[in-house]
Each structure stands twice: as C-alpha cells, then as structure tokens.
Design a protein around this nucleic acid. Structure first.
Lengths: 181, 181
DNA sequence: TAAAAATCGAACAATGTGTTTTATATCGAA
DNA sequence: TTCGATATAAAACACATTGTTCGATTTTTA
C-alpha cells in the first residue's frame, strides 16, 4: 500500500475515532472528519464512499486483529473439549478487544454501536457455531445460538463501555456463569 | 384530542410503518412519509420535530399498551414468588407484543430496531429489577441485570423477526430455560 | 354562528452530500 | 536520478433533505 494512502487512511480513522468520543455517530458529518483529519474532500471520497463504509472498515480492521491474531494460549487447549476451551477462547478475544478499547468506547457510545454489534455478531456466529454441540438445552438450536452470540456481544459492550475494572478472564467467567445451560 | 390531530397522527404512523416494511429507517425521508401519509409538510412538523421522535412516539405508544394493559392472568399469581411469576408476566408481555407484530416487524427490520431495543430495555430494566432477588449468580448485579434484560429483548427480536411459529408461552419457556442461573 | 385550532401548500434559507476538474506533490520502479 | 503513475488538494458544482415561515382554508368546539 502506498505510503500516502496509509497515511491518509490512518488520519481518517484517528479523526473519526476522536470525533466519536465527543459526538454521536449520526451527527458527525463527513466535513468534520475531513477537517479533523486535515485532508481534501475528494481524498476522503477516494477512500470511502460513505460514512457507514468508514465505520465498517474500522470494525473490520479491529475484527481482523482480534479474531485472526495468533492464539498462543489456545495451542495447548485446542483439543480440549467443552466449555473450558470456549472460555479460554473468549478470554483471548476479550484480551485483544481490550487493546482497542479507546476506539471501541467511541464506537460503542453512539448509534454506531448498533452497527458494530451487528458486525461483531456475524463473526461470533461462526465461532459459536463450532461449540454448539457442547450445549444441550431444550430450545430451538437457532434460538440458542442467537442467545449465546447476543449475550457475549452484550457482555463485551457492558465491559468496554463500563469502567473495565475486571480482567478479561473474569469477564469470560461471568459470561460462562450466566449462559451455563 | 382533536379528531384532525388523531387522524393525522394515525396517517403518519401508518405511512411510516408501511415504509419501514420495504425500506431501511435511515433511508426514509420526511418527504416520503409526508407523501405516503398525504399530509402537508408543515403538518408533519407540527406533530413531530424529527423522524427520530416519530419513531420514539410509535415505540412509546406500543410500550404503553404492552406494559400497562390489564394483566388478567397475573391477578391469580401476583404473590407467587420466584421464576414462575416472572415467566407468566413475560408471557403476557409477549402476548401483547404479538398484537403489534406488523408494526414491530417493520421497526425491527432496520436500524430503527436498535433504537427500539434501547427503549424496550429501559422498560424491561424496571421490570426485571423487581425480580432480581430471585436470581443468585456469582456475577456483579449490574452485569446480571444487563444480561437478563438484553437476553429477553433479543428473544423478542428473534421471535418477531422470525416466523413466529411459537406461542408466547413457548417463547417465555425458551427464555427461562436459557437464563436459568 | 363565531372564535379557536389544525391543516394546507408554497416558498425559503441552511446544511450536507457526492462528483468533477485541474493543478500539484509524492511515490515506486527502471 | 528520472519518469510515468498515482495520490492529494482545492474549489466549484448540482442535488437532496431539512426545518421554518406565512397566509389562506378547513374543521372543530363552544
């Protein structure tokens, strides 16, 4: 990627993130992002078609980091069955999410949080699908999956938007405690 | 309330609801609502300051119906303690929500669903707060409340946006099954 | 019937969007 | 280093949407 492109992209991300901290997503204009990032109008549109796509890109970047990063802890437990394996994996995801907590606080604080949650759940859907066999509840499978995914996403939101006093391990523990079926 | 006002208000609600069925909330313009409702521009703004406020009013109307309607079943069980009392109450709420499923499908299908969910949770927060004593989990109280409220809201969303093949009682049962802590 | 209130409809300013164009600056490869 | 390719800047533009205003008209209520 061209240095200039990367520089511009980073400037936009940072400007957007900064604006999100003090303003609702809906009320942030492209012009404000441009001014904050100190770039030309046409340059912004050369990178992103819309504000929504900008948010989507930020989320995708974060998810790519969070979900595809090396999972050192997991190697030892890759074949351990059941809930402990899931708990470790979720703890690891929380650990990586924490590294982005500044960006995430901004994103989650406004309506953009709803979009983030939607994208986040798409990723989680795949992950949890692989653990569904470990759960046995007398409810429809799609309902259960929806419940597990939604609850974890809400857990993340609760953690990030709160004071984040708990460790990733503790948060994963809370989650496992309330979904134990 | 003046007949004209009621007529106009209903026309706006119906037009908005109809548009929501085929279009995303964000992409619906005030002008489209006006055209669909066949009213004057200034009339719309005499009723609602913004599109957001229109949605908020629709939600409030529905919630008022759902949460304050007579609860016939509950009279017999008002003093029964524990989870059965909660399950009955939730079943009743689901029963009333079903009466609005046409409007709700539209609202929940787009980003307006995020706003609905937020308002809905505000109401649920009060309700669940009164049952918190019945739950005992080794997690922070605010986390647990957030989990219970969020999960029920997601349950409603799953039910309304799906095929709604289950009865309110069944859905309440599913919910109780997965939150049993 | 008469005053009060709601609606209509047209015009209006203000704001934001996304595109286009031309000139300039920077990059990457030969 | 040189040169073609590419990214950016800056300004102008058409367009859509918003929210307000105002006078005329209709409907309600007393």
């Amino acid at each position: 990627m061209d240095r200039r492109q990367k520089k511009t992209r980073d400037a936009i991300f940072q400007a957007f993130s900064k604006l999100l901290e003090k303003k609702r997503y809906e009320h942030i204009t492209v012009q404000e992002i441009i001014d904050e990032a100190d770039i030309g109008r046409s340059t912004f549109y050369a990178h992103f078609e819309t504000k929504d796509e900008l948010l989507r890109s930020m989320c995708t970047d974060i998810f790519h980091h969070v979900f595809t990063e090396d999972l050192p802890q997991e190697a030892d437990h890759a074949y351990s069955a059941g809930s402990k394996s899931l708990e470790l994996k979720l703890g690891h995801i929380l650990y990586h999410l924490k590294e982005h907590h500044r960006d995430l606080k901004g994103i989650l604080s406004s309506e953009s949080g709803a979009l983030f949650m939607r994208y986040f759940k798409e990723y989680l859907q795949d992950l949890f699908g692989r653990y569904m066999a470990d759960f046995h509840a007398n409810v429809p499978a799609d309902y259960l999956l929806n419940h597990l995914v939604g609850s974890f996403a809400e857990t993340v939101k609760w953690w990030i938007t709160g004071k984040m006093e708990c460790t990733p391990e503790e948060v994963a523990g809370f989650y496992m405690a309330v979904i134990a079926v």
